[in-house]
């Protein structure tokens, strides 16, 4: 069967745990390279100016050392940065990219050197055409250097812990007055459905007003089709609040301390 190219690499550990890595695409990588190129240019020019002072002793010596220094910076920038920053250069760091071993293992020095030396082929004929095409074709978005070094470039978006406290706590939940129906709801709703509802709530402010009403209507309707609560449980609450109550039941099995003895009227 033909394997479909995705931007995610799944790695299965011997313990049977599967984790995914988000692969970086050619455009992001090209932007990171452009930033690195600017850094190389700035560094070379700074070193050139500094070493130019040697011209006071010997012009030939100064020029020879500048030629050598610029060459070393050009070749060594990627190698040194990726080695000391564990797979990152300045450009990659700014765009949250990281070079990793294709099997998820620790990056080796030899892998870093090879992927950087093979840049010479990826650059051909100009502007990373070979590397870019290889990256587009490759299932793991690898340029030729990555392929030879057995490395991949992954994107690490900033990982935040979910702010469930802000989302769920502190509100009266009318559905909790029916524990047997709540239990049935927890039993019937799949994790995927629960995730959809949670994500809809977390991202509610990004939606247009009309789309927001329609979306929560649809989700609420789906949950109602799974478990029907008595009409008084739904009285006076919006569809969005209904979904919020459902998510509260799904993701928190116990009453929060403040709501242990609900006496107030439905919110």
């Amino acid at each position: 069967m033909r394997r479909i190219k995705t931007n995610t690499l799944l790695i299965k550990t011997p313990e049977g745990i599967v984790f995914s890595l988000l692969l970086a695409g050619p455009v992001t990588r090209f932007l990171a390279w452009a930033l690195d190129l600017a850094c190389i240019g700035a560094l070379s020019s700074a070193v050139g100016t500094l070493l130019g002072l040697l011209g006071l002793i010997s012009f030939d010596l100064a020029r020879a050392i500048i030629v050598l220094a610029c060459f070393i910076i050009q070749i060594g920038y990627g190698i040194v940065m990726e080695w000391f920053w564990r797979g990152q250069t300045i450009g990659k760091r700014l765009l949250r990219l990281r070079v990793m071993d294709a099997q998820g293992l620790r990056l080796q020095f030899s892998q870093i050197v090879i992927r950087n030396l093979l840049r010479f082929v990826d650059l051909l004929p100009a502007f990373y055409l070979v590397g870019g095409v290889a990256c587009l074709i490759s299932r793991r978005a690898q340029r030729l250097g990555d392929f030879a070094a057995n490395t991949i470039v992954v994107r690490n978006p900033k990982v935040k812990e979910p702010d469930l406290d802000q989302l769920l706590a502190g509100k009266f939940n009318s559905l909790r007055q029916y524990p047997h129906l709540s239990a049935r709801l927890r039993q019937r709703v799949s994790p995927t459905e629960a995730r959809v509802a949670l994500q809809a709530l977390l991202r509610r402010d990004e939606l247009d007003a009309l789309a927001r009403v329609e979306l929560f209507e649809e989700i609420a309707g789906h949950f109602r089709s799974l478990v029907e609560f008595p009409p008084e449980a739904n009285e006076g609450i919006t569809e969005e609040q209904y979904v919020r109550n459902v998510v509260d039941i799904l993701f928190r099995s116990q009453w929060p301390n403040r709501q242990e003895k609900p006496e107030a009227a439905p919110a």
Binding site: I11, T13, I17, F19, S20, L21, G104, N156, P157, V159, K160, E161, P162, P191, T192, A194, R195, L198, Q199, F251
Partner: peptide
């Protein structure tokens, strides 16, 4: 059992 993507991503990055 939860499919909560943010926590899962955080744990995935640690495990990786």
């Amino acid at each position: 059992f939860a499919s909560e993507p943010q926590t899962r991503r955080y744990l995935e990055s640690l495990v990786a």
